[in-house]
Amino acid sequence: MQNIVIGGSAGSFQTVTAILSSIPRNYPHAIFLCLHRLKNVRGGFVEALSLKSNVPICEPYDKDSVMPGIAYLAPANYHMYVDANNQFSLSTEEPINHSRPSIDVTFCSIAKTFKSNAIGILLSGANKDGAVGLKAIKDAGGTVIVQHPDECQVKTMTTAAIKITEVDHIMFTNNIIDYLKNLK
């Protein structure tokens, strides 16, 4: 099983929706979504993403186990880790890059836990959150993909990542989708 972690902020919602609506049902890999969102709005995001998604989407509870074929969305106002036992650890630690959930936290945790079985994808966003985490995935032997800055509504996040990491792929949304559909 591969572990795909997608981070995004401003301008990423449409791309995430396109990805989730294109990957096949019974997808054999686990998907982790860390998307910047309003801190104090608990409901609605899962429902919005689920409208067109082919895979079930849920916000994990603390200590839930990771299962393939499910997209896990980091809950509002919590950082999301995945530990060595393949269980979620949620945390109310301080915001990082003004964000909770922080993409760096989730990416670094996925890097540490899944190493070469991690695939990090960073999408459009308005701050540098995710850049350090993407580098951690690369350094741990995983594969890293960045949405093409020309396609990003806001390219701050992706250009920050490209600056500090030799990414494996810079792709447009359609190419990201093809990559994920063909993933063994």
Partner: peptide, 12 residues
């Protein structure tokens, strides 16, 4: 303690 979070607290 949950180990991953504790380790992050330490390195932070």
């Amino acid at each position: 303690f949950a180990q991953d979070i504790l380790m992050h607290r330490m390195s932070r």
